[in-house]
Design a protein around this nucleic acid. Structure first.
Lengths: 105, 105
DNA sequence: TTTATATATTATAAATTTATAAATTATTAT
DNA sequence: ATAATAATTTATAAATTTATAATATATAAA
């Protein structure tokens, strides 16, 4: 069921490219902190700020990157903007990272 | 068993930092291609070159990065240098990536 | 309508990474 | 020794990312 057709170099490079696009987004300490928080559920910017100690403009900037790459969803409610993880792939990778480096290491 | 103590911000940042160091290394298309090949077992530089179409000096440069960060082992045999994955964490992450983007997607 | 709170945007300098070319080292075969 | 093959190292320009500061927008409360 997890059988693997022999793939040519270009097919592999294509997969590597996709995986790499995602990894580039995760490979930043601030973004990783934010996503780590969001694995626990939806949070607004103020909550993320408190939980990460990332200064507000930087945080907002990193959230913008995550939004543009469709890694997170935004939901506006009054003055508050609530974020949550949109990408199943990211959830899976965060789970693996959590088991390797996180609280249940 | 996977219970989680409440962690302070600095402890979480520390974990994020460790995970991030690893992700930065994976977040490059060439290095990812190379590691993808090495998940299938030890290979020498020429074999890696043929399997990835990465030009030789670039490939050697990326292998140097992987070596310095203890992601791969090198074993010299005559004119040939054989590489293999040294990091269990990397193996685990590659496995997750493989299931998301790879042949058994 | 003024003020305060929450958040986002813009701009720019500094740092890091990537791409590319040239030169060098190591081992084996002739 | 000389040549050939396998691989690494060095150098540098180009591109991307990160850090930092200043400014702007949106909503709600007074």
């Amino acid at each position: 069921m997890t059988d693997c057709k022999i793939q040519n170099v270009e097919a592999i490079r294509d997969s590597a490219g996709q995986a790499c696009s995602m990894l580039k987004i995760l490979a930043n300490e601030d973004r990783l902190m934010l996503l780590c928080q969001l694995t626990q559920g939806e949070k607004n910017v103020g909550e993320l700020e408190a939980a990460t100690n990332i200064q507000q403009p930087t945080l907002s900037q990193q959230l913008t990157i995550l939004r543009k790459d469709n890694i997170v969803n935004i939901r506006k409610d009054g003055k508050f903007n609530y974020y949550s993880i949109a990408s199943d792939e990211v959830i899976q990778v965060m789970q693996t990272l959590g088991s390797l480096y996180g609280c249940n290491k």
